[in-house]
């Protein structure tokens, strides 16, 4: 039969097999960028910044993955997966850079799978359980607004690799923020129930905003984004109260350890294995 070729080539060797992650590596964002860590840069600081940004992305991607097969509509399955994949891609690049910068040469999986909760530096908002769609949307709006503003600044970082990662990330994050903003407006404006859920989500997110603003110097941008969205959605601005502790210092909620147990379980059960 004439259609067999698709299947028959399966067992043949393919040199490009290592790059077979659909949508995750056809274009190397670091193509043409010199990955040598520049002289005179504070490598400890660079590594710590990369790890913190990677942890935010990985933990967010893990929560987004939990939506898969549970989203309100098929289009949302696709969109949330897309956002999760973007963040996962950012995390992988950032971990690799951290390993180069801190001199340990650790790879992405060493950071993701073989550190405990106390070593993670993500902000706590990222690790909270998904809640309902309203909470996930408000969280995505806040985190992507914050991250896109921060990444904008990183595009002029003295480390060319981090700057290149940020430049790629800005495009992705701009879409994430837009997706979240559009849903925030739909839900805020939609029905009584969706409005009520959005108000509650705003209240739930509020305590975690302070941590974002002390971690990143992006308060003005985030407040401006939130103001625009809440006005269009007919929602009040979230009023935040400071919450003690900081994810950036390794102080987390009780939700991070179970998230990591799921993420790391198989890898840790087979430490000698290659995947």
């Amino acid at each position: 039969m004439s259609d067999d070729h698709v299947y028959l080539t399966l067992a043949e060797g393919h040199e490009d097999d290592t790059r077979w992650a659909y949508g995750t590596g056809f274009e190397d964002p670091l193509h043409g960028v010199d990955t040598t860590v520049p002289e005179g840069i504070d490598t400890g600081r660079l590594a710590a910044d990369c790890v913190a940004l990677a942890d935010d992305a990985l933990v967010s991607a893990q929560r987004l993955a939990e939506w898969i097969t549970r989203a309100p509509e098929l289009e949302e399955e696709v969109a949330l997966a897309n956002i999760g994949l973007d963040l996962l891609g950012q995390a992988r690049l950032l971990y690799s850079r951290a390993g180069q910068a801190d001199g340990t040469g650790r790879d992405e999986d060493a950071y993701a799978y073989f550190r405990d909760a106390g070593d993670f530096r993500n902000v706590r908002l990222a690790e909270l359980p998904n809640g309902d769609f309203a909470f996930s949307i408000v969280r995505l709006l806040v985190l992507s607004s914050c991250r896109v503003a921060h990444f904008h600044r990183l595009t002029s970082h003295t480390d060319p690799v981090l700057a290149a990662i940020a430049a790629k990330g800005v495009k992705e994050l701009t879409y994430h923020r837009q997706y979240a903003a559009e849903w925030a407006v739909r839900l805020g404006d939609g029905t009584e129930e969706s409005h009520r859920r959005m108000r509650r989500a705003m209240d739930q997110v509020a305590p975690y905003l302070g941590e974002l603003f002390t971690t990143y110097d992006v308060r003005d941008e985030v407040v401006a984004d939130l103001r625009q969205v809440t006005e269009a959605a007919g929602l009040p601005m979230p009023v935040y109260r400071p919450l003690p502790g900081a994810g950036r210092d390794g102080e987390h909620t009780e939700h991070l350890a179970p998230l990591l147990a799921e993420l790391q379980g198989v890898a840790r059960a087979h430490p000698e294995a290659t995947w």
């Binding site: 659909y22 995750t24 098929l74 696709v78 994949l85 993701a112």
Partner: peptide, 28 residues
């Protein structure tokens, strides 16, 4: 989809995530 959150390497996680996303696209 059960295994996206448990995939034992970030590369396998990305591959699986993208695959399950493709399936949603096929459904559409």
């Amino acid at each position: 989809g059960e295994w996206i959150t448990k995939a034992p390497s970030l590369r396998r996680k990305a591959i699986l995530f993208a695959k399950v996303q493709d399936e949603a696209g096929h459904g559409l």
